[in-house]
């Protein structure tokens, strides 16, 4: 284990992160939308999800290992679910905080519920949703370290090896690239924030 294996580990780590965040984005946004349409249901579901959110990743990966075995899917399922939480919460929060005046205006103009969602509510909630995406991305980079725990590679390999052999250099060889990765991905999301947030909302004024 050394410099030669670093690129592969980094690539694995990146793949795990991107795939999980992608899963989290799809699940988080769609569940967030679904829950925001059903305020009564979300009053029950959201607290339960928060409780799940507090289960340590390491425990969850361990449990999933028993069910799914030692394979990349286990990692993706675990990380995907964890990546979902911040996005779901922010999607929900962003959608329910859209000012009623816009929804009333959209309805009054003759938008169907779907058009209202796509043309008005989602664009207005976009800053909050992308905030969730950023959180989720940065967290997932650090959670992806857990992949090594069940032998699936990534930067966690260095960290676990470093811990068991008491080699600080090895730990840092895993930790520093992970930190840099988190920083770079976070900045990419910030860039996305700039591109995806509607222009009219960026200039301050009457947004959500």
């Amino acid at each position: 284990m050394g410099w030669s294996t670093l690129p592969l580990a980094l690539a694995q780590h990146l793949m795990f992160t991107l795939a999980s965040v992608a899963i989290g984005l799809v699940l988080g946004v769609s569940l967030g939308i679904a829950l925001s349409r059903r305020p009564k249901l979300s009053g029950v579901v959201l607290p339960i999800l928060s409780v799940f959110n507090t289960i340590p990743g390491i425990v969850f990966v361990g449990l999933l290992l028993l069910v799914l075995g030692m394979q990349p899917v286990t990692v993706l399922v675990a990380l995907g679910i964890y990546a979902t939480f911040p996005i779901l919460k922010n999607t929900y929060a962003g959608l329910v905080s859209v000012d009623q005046q816009y929804i009333e205006a959209a309805k009054g103009c003759g938008m169907s519920p779907r058009q209202c969602l796509l043309r008005v509510e989602l664009p207005l909630a976009m800053p909050t949703i992308i905030g969730g995406l950023r959180m989720s991305t940065v967290y997932t980079v650090s959670w992806a370290v857990l992949a090594a725990m069940i032998g699936q590679g990534g930067l966690g390999d260095f960290i676990y090896a470093g811990i068991s052999s008491n080699d600080n250099g090895l730990i840092l060889m895993g930790a520093i690239p992970a930190a840099i990765l988190a920083f770079i991905l976070g900045s990419l999301v910030d860039l996305l924030q700039k591109l995806a947030v509607p222009k009219g909302l960026r200039k301050g004024g009457s947004g959500v």
């Binding site: 005046q101 816009y102 309805k107 009054g108 938008m111 043309r119 207005l124 009219g200 004024g205």
Partner: peptide
Amino acid sequence: KVDLRRHIGYVIQQIGLFPNMTVAQNICVV
């Protein structure tokens, strides 16, 4: 309902212009 509303103009007290759309886009929503 939806079709009915597209043929009835509606102005509200809170104005409710969509902040994500330009003036021209807002005017042309319907």
